[in-house]
């Protein structure tokens, strides 16, 4: 498994911390799945922040703060600085939202913000599209990780454009690639890993499931299965049958 800015992850599952029915369920989802990275955010202090932060610390996971909801470079860069101080990490999941309905990243601002933050010493995890040229620009801006969307955030549609995601994997064989957003089912997560992605980041599919902890566990098994399958070099699909039992030596009985 590739490293993420020099850090080796214990497994390929990054899990969001939002939308769970309760903090206890959130905690259980992490404990039952063993996810090694938790995404977090910064919001106006309302009293609940300190308890939440203590719980995340107690989980002993790596923390990936986001810039969720930011629409401008300035907003995202300022949020990143605030996150670095609060969470004491150089890691930042850079989100620059360009479209209200699809939450599609504004890739032009994304590249600009990535460059500014990298120069400021951040280790940027850009939430991007599956566009190869944007990927190149992000790498030129100093990113060592790319996080293309599978489908719009929270949509649960899986990998909308598998062709593009496969092309991205082929184009950037040495870059750590994460499918971020759009995963709905363990089969989607497994598929991402079968394509050779290095990790999957998801939140809604687990947090909004009837039993989040159980779904988190299912997701972990799925990413691990997909990862093993990729390493095992799967067979190519074919149109016609090919007998698996040897034909030679079959008795003449008809």
């Amino acid at each position: 498994m590739k490293s993420f800015y020099g850090v080796d992850l214990p497994n390929p599952l990054m899990l969001g911390t939002a939308q769970y029915p309760s903090p206890a369920v959130l905690e259980q989802a992490f404990r039952d799945s063993g996810a090694g990275v938790a995404t977090v955010s910064l919001r106006r202090e309302s009293g609940a922040g300190q308890t939440f932060w203590q719980m995340i610390r107690d989980l002993g996971v790596l923390v990936l703060p986001n810039t969720a909801g930011c629409h401008t470079v300035k907003e995202a860069v300022t949020t990143a600085h605030m996150a670095r101080e609060v969470f004491e990490t150089k890691w930042i999941k850079l989100e620059l939202i360009g479209h209200t309905d699809s939450l599609q990243p504004d890739v032009f601002q994304l590249v600009e913000a990535a460059r500014i933050l990298t120069e400021d010493g951040f280790e940027v995890f850009p939430y991007t599209t599956d566009d190869l040229i944007v990927g190149e620009r992000l790498l030129e801006a100093g990113c060592e990780v790319l996080m293309p969307w599978g489908a719009p955030i929270g949509s649960g549609r899986g990998l909308n454009n598998e062709y593009a995601l496969r092309a991205m994997r082929a184009e950037f064989p040495d870059v750590s690639l994460v499918i971020d957003a759009g995963i709905g089912l363990p089969s989607h997560a497994a598929r991402a890993m079968e394509l050779g992605y290095d990790a999957v980041l998801l939140n809604t599919a687990v947090a909004r499931a009837g039993d989040p902890a159980l779904m988190a566990k299912a997701m972990m098994r799925a990413v691990e299965a997909g990862q093993l399958a990729h390493q095992a070099d799967p067979i190519e699909a074919r149109d016609m049958a090919e007998p698996s039992t040897p034909v030679v030596g079959k008795a003449f009985l008809s």
Partner: peptide, 10 residues
């Protein structure tokens, strides 16, 4: 003045 604290996020 904005005062922000850790919060759940995806």
């Amino acid at each position: 003045v904005e005062i922000l604290s850790p919060m759940q996020g995806g």
